[in-house]
Every structure is written in structure tokens, then in C-alpha cells.
Design a protein around this nucleic acid. Sequence first.
DNA 1: AATGAATGAGCCTTCATTCAT
DNA 2: AATGAATGAAGGCTCATTCAT
Lengths: 200, 200, 200, 200
Amino acid sequence: MSKEKILDAGQHLFAEKGFEGTSVRALAQAAGVNIAMISYYFGNKESLFEAIVERKTAYTRQRLEEVSHQTTASPVEKLDFVIDYYVDLILSNRKFHLMLYRELTLAQRKDFHDHILDILQKNWRELQGILLEGQDKKSFKQDIDTDMVIMTVFGVINQCSQTGILRKLIDKQDVADQEQEVRKRLKQYLKDLFHAYLLV
Amino acid sequence: MSKEKILDAGQHLFAEKGFEGTSVRALAQAAGVNIAMISYYFGNKESLFEAIVERKTAYTRQRLEEVSHQTTASPVEKLDFVIDYYVDLILSNRKFHLMLYRELTLAQRKDFHDHILDILQKNWRELQGILLEGQDKKSFKQDIDTDMVIMTVFGVINQCSQTGILRKLIDKQDVADQEQEVRKRLKQYLKDLFHAYLLV
Amino acid sequence: MSKEKILDAGQHLFAEKGFEGTSVRALAQAAGVNIAMISYYFGNKESLFEAIVERKTAYTRQRLEEVSHQTTASPVEKLDFVIDYYVDLILSNRKFHLMLYRELTLAQRKDFHDHILDILQKNWRELQGILLEGQDKKSFKQDIDTDMVIMTVFGVINQCSQTGILRKLIDKQDVADQEQEVRKRLKQYLKDLFHAYLLV
Amino acid sequence: MSKEKILDAGQHLFAEKGFEGTSVRALAQAAGVNIAMISYYFGNKESLFEAIVERKTAYTRQRLEEVSHQTTASPVEKLDFVIDYYVDLILSNRKFHLMLYRELTLAQRKDFHDHILDILQKNWRELQGILLEGQDKKSFKQDIDTDMVIMTVFGVINQCSQTGILRKLIDKQDVADQEQEVRKRLKQYLKDLFHAYLLV
DNA sequence: AATGAATGAGCCTTCATTCAT
DNA sequence: AATGAATGAAGGCTCATTCAT
């Protein structure tokens, strides 16, 4: 009960304020539990952070595997699906993902960094599998840089999420519409881009 | 004299440890000045940070403007040049740029966030100018998403810089070679990608 | 069952880490019982400590009384026996005795201090009885300071046990031999010393 | 100024409550300075403790050396002087010395333990020098255990200081008289004891 | 222009103990 | 008889900043 409340509060607060910016006092207060419960359940703040990332990414990985291992869809269809999936995933959890990548760029806490990177790489391998399958089936070109394609998918989505620049480019409508507009545009763009680059 | 030393020390330390991770004590010690000098010259840590970013980006912007305003090159050539330029720029100052984007994603410090974003947008407008010029001259397609192309340039370079994943993918050679290999591969990929997407 | 396990764990842990240095959590873990059991059985940490000391000293006192009340031996023989006995006793339980005297010197916990001192004094009175008997029988000098002799017996043994200096003075042999060497030397010295001081 | 105040407050508080029992908050309050000044001047609580011991023992060592190196006195006179000196020294700073020996028996903090022991051993060597000189000059017996004599001097004084038992043995007079009585009796006893044991 | 001392708030963690079951 | 969850206080320490000189 308290454990869940701490995880929930942590997911929200870490996303909002970052690791350093979130004090255990604030965590305990937001979770409505005593400050000592963080140590009691998780040992320390760092381990709580890892537990939150673990919970979040485990769910994501599971969902992703289900999708990418299905055999009925073509590589292009799978790629399009993954694009849609990741755009929605990242933009629906903007602050959390931003925070994750932010902490990832801090050379401090090397062990944690490697741990998270391993988890993310598992997901990246799924995408790589689709690209290689497409090359095998001759539906994608042979001289493409698959690593870079993966970098592009996450790089573009993160960049949009990060800078929030599109909010400035489209300022005619209200916030909710903007959000939908950005997602739609992002999905369309990535598909167009990769169809132009990948397809034979 | 002391002021310069503080700026230099700050540029290095903030890049290495981030804003939160850099203490005023560490700054003073690294600069070889008294701890009170930071407040004396810059008021507080945040303002020192802004001064450092200002100094760094001003230099970059100046260099970029010189390049993009030249009239002899074609849009494609200009695009290719900007790609080369940014890959070298960001990868040559990896830690600083990572830190910059990291701090940018923290909702805290809103004013600072907007200030930095304004600076970066100036540079982005240069790139946008090239894309629009290409459309004008009918050398680029008409139905392209120019905002997204900009997001892609920075997104992909940052993603490579950020995760350092390529270091894992190419581990046959020594570090210096890897660095060159990554840059070369990144430049080639981005050109191939945009030529496929942009050119009529 | 749990109570015994706690007492055993406490005797070992308090000897090793001292009163302050032993946490209730560590006690519970070492005893393999729930943390709340310490409060359940003993009320609080302090009372547990007293219970342990009580158990330990009661056993010692019983052994000592058996010995000192025997009537066949002369005062000198009795004294020699007590010296042998105490050297072995204290050096065989070095850490426990060190801890006991250590806690005794803390002005805090006055009640506990007095309680322990009463117990120890009972044993001291046995030794004093021997000395007075020796004076009565004219085998010891009349102008000796019996209180100080008692202080000397315990003071010297404790000092050796405490500083572990003899380990540094005799470093030719292995640890087990050192231990035996120290005991032998200590017994011989104390007998020589008191024979010189006490005997008529 | 603050540094001195912290050292003074520390000397008093550590003697009174021990290392663990003295909080940095209490130290700061007793010294009338801000809590951060302990870190500012000494780094941490442990280093403050070492600084205090250093200051105290340095003064003692200096005094002792002056005395033991004088050439006019005989070995017996020197021994008697050292006995008088140490009885006064330890009983005048009872709580401090008790605390010192107490902390010395804690296996925790091994480095600190060794450091203090080294300092104390320097003083012990002075006493050992006197005993060896006495043997050289044939005024002391040849078959004495000099290490044990040293253990005895400190052991007996510490034991008296520690248990405070004499307070119970002599309870006819007021406290100040007791103190003097104990010192006088202790000095006399130690001289009698060693004269009996050492002299040819 | 520059300093070292000083501040007070805040950090994370651990403590002995008690509660509800 | 026994438990795991929960408590609130206190622990040592570091922080950015300011003061007096």
C-alpha cells in the first residue's frame, strides 16, 4: 500500500523535478507516508529511482515484444506500427522520458546509467530486428544504416518532446489540439522519411 | 582576470557534472579564486551559468551566420555543409551540448529555459531558411515538413552523442578512430536520408 | 527460544560493537527474530543489555565463590589462584570485558553504572577477604593498601587486554602463541609483584 | 576564534559524553557557532576529535619529555616523579582520559585507534627508558618485566579513575578532600609497590 | 577587487520504538 | 507468541549565499 504510493509519487516527482531536484522529504509528503518509509522499502533514493524505472520499462518492453513478434504483418507495417507506438508512448509520458534521458546523460552514477541503457537497448533490438527482416525480404534497401535509423526514431521524437518547439510553431489552437496535431504530424513525417530512405 | 577564470572553469565543470552537480565551492576551487567571487561577479550560480551559455552560443551563432548567408552555394550544398558543420560542432563539444539539452528539459528555471531556446531558435531559423530556399528554387519537394527536418538534424546528432551507443556497436577500433568513424557515418547517413526525403 | 537467541546475539554483538554501535535491527537480524521482539521481551535496548550482563556476571560470580571459600589453601595460594583465574577469565572474554568497562566509564546511564558496579564489587570483596585473612594470619604485611591491590589486579589485566600493546612487543610468534605468552607473563608478573609487596 | 571555541567545546563534550554521544549540533551549540563551522574547520566530526586529542597529548608529551630527559635525578627519583606526574595528570583530567581509553577499545575506527596508540606509546617509551636506565645503573633488579611495570602504572591509575570505587571506600569526607586523599594514597601505593618490586 | 569566516536551511539516512493484526 | 508496517526524531554533512574587513 505505502510501497505503491511511494512508487507512484516517485514516478510523478522524478519526472517533474529530476532525480537531484526531488528530495526524499518531498517524496514522502507527496506519497503521504513517513519519510523513513523510503529507506524501509527501497533502501535509498537511488534504489527507489531504479525500481520506478524498472516498473515503467518492464511494462513497455512487454507491450513492445507482443507487437514486434507477430508474424502476420509485413516489415513496413511493423515499422509503421512501431513509429505510431513510440510517438504515442513517449509523448504520453513526456516528462518521464525526458527525465530518463536527462539522467542518462549524467556521467555520474555510472552503474545506474549502464543498467538503464541495457534495458533501453533491449527495446532497440526489437526495432533492429524489424529492419533486418525487411532487408532479408528484399522490401528494404541493402545499403541502409540500421543503427542510425534507430537513432533517428528516438532522436526525433525526443527532440520534439524535449524542446517543445512545436508549441511555438503551432500556436493557433488550444493545448489539447496541439498535442494531437504534433503526434499526427510526427507520425506522418517519420513514415514519409523512412519510406523514402528505406523502400527499394 | 578572475572573471574569465570563473567562466572557463564553469564551462568545463558544468559540462562535466551538470548544473546541480557543480557546487560553488568546486567552481571557486577549479578557477583558483575565492568562493565569494562567484556571487561578486555574477550574483548567483544561475546567472553564471547563463553567462557561460551566452558566451558559448554567441560564438557558435556568429560562425553559423557567416556560413549560411553565402550566396554561391546551392541549397543542397548548403544543407550538406550545415550537416557537416553541426555534426562536428556537437560531437566536438559533446559534454557541453549534452548538458545544455539536459538543463533545457528541466521545467524548473522557466525563464532560463526560454532564454536558451530563443538563442537556439535563431540558429534553427538559418537552417529553415535553407530549406525554404530549396523549395523556392524547386530543388526540394513542396510537401515536406521543414520543422521536422530541423528536429531530425539535431535529434539524431544529439541521440548519437547522448547514448554513446555507437561506441558499443563499433568496438573493434580504438577510441580516436571510433570518434572519427561515428562522425563520418553520421554525416553520410544524414545526407542520404535527406536526399531521399527532400530531393524532387 | 527467541529470548535465548536474542541474549546470545546480544552478548556477541555488544562485545564486538559496543552498546551505541549495536542497533536493534542488527540484534534482531543476528538473532534471526523480528525486530519488535527486543521490545517485546526486554522492553528496550538498555534492559536487554542489563539482562546480558546479569547472565554473564552471575555465572562468573558463582565460579569465583566456589573457589575463594575453600579452606584448605593458604592466603598466598588463594591469591595466586585468583590471579590465575582472573587472567584467564578476562583474557578469554576480552571483548566482553572491554565493553563492560567501556560502558562503565560513561557517566550517562547512571543507574546502570551503579548496578554493574555493585555486581563487580561483590567479586572484589572476595579478593579483599583473602587479603585480610592473610593479614590476620600474619603472612601478609600489616601496612598494605588492600583496596589498591584489588585495583592493581584488575587494572593491570584490563590495561593489557585494552591496549593490546603486548602484541606489538612480542611479534616473533604467531597469534595463538602470543596469547599464551601474554597470559603466562601476566600471571608470573602479578605473583612476583605482590609477593614482593605483600609478604612479610 | 570559532576554531578555538569548537576545540574547547569538543574537549569538554567528548570527555563528558564520548564520541558517539556527542552530536555535531551539540558541539556547535556548546561552542556558540553555526553547525556548518565544524565541517568548515575540521572536515568532519572524526577529524575534530583527532585534532582535540592531538592538541591535548602534544602538550602532555612535551611536559613529559622535559622531565624525563633531565640528568641530575636518579632512576628512582625519576620514577617517583613520573608516578606523581601521571597521577595528577590523569586524575585532573579524569573524564578526558577515561573517554580516550574508552574510544581506544572500540575496534571500529581502526586508523584512529592506531594513531592514538602511537602517540601514547611515545610517552610509554619515556617511562621504559627510565626503567632500563635503572637496570643499567644496577639500582633496579635485572629480572623485572618492564613492559608490565608500564602497564601497571597506567592500569592502576585508570582503574581508580574508572571505577570511582574509592569514592565508595572513603565516604566520610567531602568531595574535594576525597580527591586529594585518593591522589595521595595512589602515589604512596605505587611508590611502595615498585620500590618493593624493582629495588635490589 | 578580494577575502575568509559565518550563516541557516536543507540534504539523505538511520535510529529505537510502537502500532495493528 | 509473533509480525511487518509505520513513526518521528535525530543523526552527520553540504549547500549557496552573505557579511565584515
